[in-house]
Amino acid sequence: MIRSITQKKNDEEIEQLLNGFNRIFIIGCGTCTTLTRTGGEPEVQGLKKNLSGKGKMITGTLVVPVACDNLSQDFLSDFGSQIRQADALLVTSCAFGVQTIARQLKKMTVPALNTLFIGKETAYGTFDEICTQCGTCIIGETGGICPVTNCHKGLVNGPCGGTNHGKCEIDINKDCAWTLIYNRLKDMDQLDSMRKYQKPRNHLGEPKPGKFKLPEEENV
């Protein structure tokens, strides 16, 4: 399952972001950041303990099932007063959740995490980016491996000179995407796919910020 991959901000940055706010309500997320162990119940309780020790008053904590969905009326009636008492909300979801909460609650909202990428856990505690959502998918010709995401340079026509015995010159722990693609296409006897010239990527595939509407006849 794909997840929003996050990393905890360091304590100094969180302290600095909360400077001047004494009463804090902490919101965690029961989906991605629980699964990645960066913003579920244990991490929320850890922050509560840490910030309490630094003199902050924690008005309450809550781990919502999905922070990027609007908070339900049930949660708001159960926790509304604790949220209202707070000067600021500290959120341990990814940035999608932080933005949803900030928009809905209209309170000072502080992220406790940095959102890194959309990816998956490929080994315990190891997360890899899988798709950058470029809007112009070419993986039908690259053996199902995305070079736009997995090649450090996002090259679409083959490896650069920094390919290094199957690894990437920027990091010996990162695979060379084009070696992976080559090996897979070769196994499937489809190397001609790699010989095909890929035109320069169309950066207008989905310009930022992404916005897409289903055509009307399908949107019923």
């Binding site: 083959g158 490896p159 000179g161 084009w178 070696t179 080559y182 790699m194």
Partner: peptide
């Protein structure tokens, strides 16, 4: 353009080398 004749594996480099010549 450039090519890396000592790359390992070599064949992906050669495929790209030919693309560069075509280009």
């Amino acid at each position: 353009a450039i090519v890396t004749p000592e790359a390992d594996p070599l064949e992906p480099q050669l495929i790209k080398f030919e693309k560069k010549i075509d280009a």
